[in-house]
Nucleic acid binder design. Structure first.
Lengths: 259, 259
DNA sequence: CTACTCTAAAGGTACGGACATTTGAGGGAG
DNA sequence: CTCCCTCAAATGTCCGTACCTTTAGAGTAG
């Protein structure tokens, strides 16, 4: 309700400031029940309706809100997180881009040996592996169950990190100086087991993505990962164009895309 | 060049008419060298700059033109070699690659109007659409349920085709001379309804991919498609490497990867 | 209590004007 | 001839207004 004033002298366009302000208020859970009308925003922020609409247009194209004629805009039902396909993506970054607060519950974090995983990484069966198991939440609601194995020889510097609020890849880069440069993953559609469904707290009748990933950095295997993502809160998205092949969906700029 | 007058009494918004008019002129090769400025369009069509910008915004979001400050809009990259891409393409191409015989059962094939789909394609609600519904089989076993809507104005030449053994995109190219050059798709994980499960003959407890796709050719919307793919027979696979970009491959049962 | 009608409110469309910022080309200085 | 500056042109931003269409709810008739 604060409606923090916008900076008219800033180089950032007014509508963009307004857009970010609304995302922030939304992330704070302010518009849980109903969104604000255009005219109300005009009054609140002292800008023209044109500017308000430009900001709302962006939010709509990002799938944050939905609008219809004659009705007030509403917060899009459980903001579905869209994941651009194909890149070395970070689930963390995707949730961030969706404007949702996120954190993880670390369920396991130790060093162990796993013959099956070691084999998949092309390592000796007895190779010690750092194992990290997290329940990832976005907006106080479980989103994914994430399990990662990394060779201890490379990932030892990670052992002191706190993974409740940071991304694994960010820690890999800063603490161990490792940046992934290649990988392979495959995505399956599955029905979660009752145990998994309980952990993810997803309603019955929902499906999930099961993602296996093997990543390398400079030819060395760095991680083997299994992620189970709720299908009712997550979607893969791809734009494609001739010549360029797949490219990441852009979030910035004035591009408008109908979700 | 004619700058055909817009119909102000039409139910279709002015900016949408302008958008389509520009796409038509562009498809006719009129703007091969340089595009027209906003102010020029204001004069040509006798509409406000606001309306022109709304039309250009759509064209930009479809990747037809690119615009920058201080310069006139330009026609975006020359669409050279066009080939359908994405999860759907890799799906059927890799069925071929796997050496599995595939064919389709055409369940519906007619011309109709659908306001919802027309809206998604950015067309008028009453626009006639060619509708094709197929059950796709690979190796005598159902694999996917495929439904496509295409504007009849473009897809009329397809009506005589037999889609039990040929690809829609191949027919589009040979019969209508249309090659898709852009598109967007998103992939969801869902649990098929009992009716869908019966059609796909998939065992209980299996999930499925639900794929929505919107494709364009030279800025004109060509198809809106929904495909439901059995999750127990299909998986998405992605290879990625720094620098080289990335590619989407497909895996079925034992993963089939194209180099 | 139900069903219909009417109306206020909200977003969608379209018009107008004004200024800011960037680009690109032309002209002048060296 | 080259380099730099200036300036017109083009898009981006922002404001204001008006009207139309749809929605949802209040009010009324049955």
């Amino acid at each position: 309700m604060a409606a923090q004033a916008l900076d008219r002298s800033s180089a950032q366009p007014l509508w963009q400031q307004l857009q970010h302000a609304l995302v922030a208020r939304l992330a704070a859970g302010e518009f849980a029940d109903h969104f604000v009308g255009e005219l109300a925003l005009v009054d609140e922020y002292g800008v023209s309706r044109h500017t308000v609409r430009q900001a709302l247009r962006q939010l709509r194209s990002d799938g944050v809100i939905v609008a219809e004629r004659g009705r007030q805009p509403r917060v899009a039902p459980p903001p579905e997180i869209q994941q651009p396909m194909g890149a070395l993506y970070s689930l963390f970054a995707s949730v961030e881009a969706a404007g949702l607060p996120q954190h993880s519950v670390v369920r396991r974090f130790d060093t162990r040996a796993d013959a099956v995983v070691a084999d998949r990484l092309g390592l000796d069966a007895s190779t010690p592996l750092v194992y990290l198991e997290r329940l990832r939440l976005a907006g106080d609601e479980p989103l994914a169950l994430d399990r990662v194995w990394l060779p201890a020889a490379l990932a030892a510097p990670l052992l002191g990190a706190d993974f409740t609020h940071t991304s694994l890849y960010a820690e890999l880069a800063t603490r161990a100086g490792i940046r992934l440069d290649r990988g392979h993953e495959d995505v399956h559609a599955v029905v979660p087991t009752p145990a998994e469904r309980a952990q993810l707290r997803c309603p019955p009748g929902t499906a999930a993505f099961s993602i296996n990933r093997r990543s390398l950095a400079q030819g060395r295997p760095v991680e083997w990962r299994h992620t189970l993502v709720r299908g009712d809160r997550f979607a893969l998205a791809a734009d494609f164009a001739a010549g360029t092949g797949y490219r990441l969906t852009q979030a910035e700029g004035t591009a408008v895309r109908s979700g």
